[in-house]
């Protein structure tokens, strides 16, 4: 990694790496992929999030769905771990709770492939501050 020497360089990196997929997957058309975030804090992992994440990554690839699977920190829904957030291209992200392999399979087949919602949706009940003025 090259050192960032000035604040201007730092801002450049920020703008280049515009939050989103470019960070994870370089190249055009990244926004057309399905984004899956798996909550992987201690609590999530203890409830099986690692297994969920592996399954998601493998299954999506095998089924030929262009997707990016990322681990993130705690989403706050301890009562419904493992939790994942799925964002289909051009639509709002949806959070699902209690996602084991079976549920993950259902989410891929019904929601990701067909846009059909499945049981286990967790309505997001917080707002995150916007850092950009």
């Amino acid at each position: 990694m090259e050192k960032i020497k000035t604040l201007i360089d730092l801002k450049k990196i920020r703008d280049e790496k515009l939050f989103g997929l470019q960070i994870r997957e370089k190249g055009e058309g990244a926004e057309n992929r399905v984004q899956v975030k798996v909550a992987m804090a201690t609590c999530g992992i203890a409830s099986g999030a690692k297994d969920t994440m592996e399954f998601m990554a493998e299954a999506l690839e095998k089924r030929g769905i262009e997707a990016v699977v990322t681990k993130v920190g705690c989403m706050g829904y301890c009562y419904a771990e493992p939790t994942i957030e799925v964002k289909l291209p051009g639509s709002e992200p949806v959070v699902f709770g209690g996602v084991d392999r079976e549920k993950a399979d259902e989410i891929i087949e019904k929601f990701i492939k067909g846009g059909e919602l499945v049981d286990g949706i967790i309505p997001v009940n917080y707002e995150t501050i916007d850092l950009k003025e």
């Binding site: 939050f19 994870r24 975030k37 909550a39 804090a41 990322t70 681990k71 993130v72 920190g73 705690c74 989403m75 706050g76 957030e85 917080y126 707002e127 995150t128 501050i129 850092l131």
Partner: peptide, 12 residues
């Protein structure tokens, strides 16, 4: 409102 937790569950 998430301030301290602003990036939790959002970034890797």
């Amino acid at each position: 409102i998430r301030i301290a937790l602003r990036n939790c569950g959002i970034i890797d």
